[in-house]
Amino acid sequence: MRLSKLLTVSALAVSLAVPAMTGAAFAQDKPVVGLVMKSLANEFFKNMLEGAEAHAAEKGTYELRAVGMQSETDIETQINAVENFITQQVDVIVIAPADSRALIAPLKRAADAGIEVVNIDVELDPQAKTDAGVELAFVGPDNREGARMSGDTLAAELGQGGKVVILEGNPGADNAIQRKLGFDDSIAANGLELVDSRTAHWETEEANSVFTNMLTANPDIQGVMAANDSMALGVVKALEAANRTDIKVVGFDNISAIRPMIQEGKVLATVDQFGSQMAAQAIDKALEVLAGAPPLEGWIKTDLALITADTQN
């Protein structure tokens, strides 16, 4: 049945943004919330969009306009989306910024235009915010803390002196940096030995190759910390190919493909940051402010949960 969708492919416009306009049929007087996400090709943001749509439909007190983009780094599309929302005079903008600095100027314009702006997912650079003279609250998870939780599970399994490697996300990406710091925290606190740390750009195939080569160079590796589950999947396949059942793996994100691996014990742990609820939570906070609550400030941390074979059941 999904194949039938394929037949409509030729009719698909090659749009550079992926507009997902929803709720246009709602009454005009409801507050309008503009949600700007990163790539909807990423399951994380796909879930976030669905969570927000479900939330909007359930509450029925606001109109949701959501925009995604084509790739993780498509900064310009996001800036355009923010500017379009300013033109449309929406009441709230909730944004998962593609870049922690580049989005500050357009968001300041939005705030100056009286729009309630809430930053989710990745925090905008505090220094750049100060420089621009803008105060924006951040609603999101502590990636560093999550990575530490994941790393600690591995450390508990390996014990003092365990030799580990890290697979990092995209160099320079804020969540990649935070997760690397969290892994480093765990390694330092638990007396593990870091043998090597490399990026596999969040990708399964690259993680498979890069980790295989790391393992060749360091056959005595005992544990792997992958900054996301897609890379952990590549590591698991590499371990299967090398017949190494002794090496433990932890990941991050709790994507659906990782769950059977956790059941089977191929992956020790992952972390869920409840992306599906993140946008909905931020929207609630912003609507409260519109209704007269005090303005949002600082970092409003969202939930994190460690997922292991024990917690899954």
């Binding site: 999904r2 394929l6 492919v9 698909l12 090709a41 659906s256």
Partner: peptide, 22 residues
């Protein structure tokens, strides 16, 4: 370059952006 976009969009449409893993 056009096909690069069309095929990616089609792949996302076919799967509804989900990963198939079994």
């Amino acid at each position: 370059l056009g096909m690069l976009n069309i095929a990616r969009g089609a792949a996302l449409t076919v799967t509804d952006a989900r990963t198939i893993y079994s």
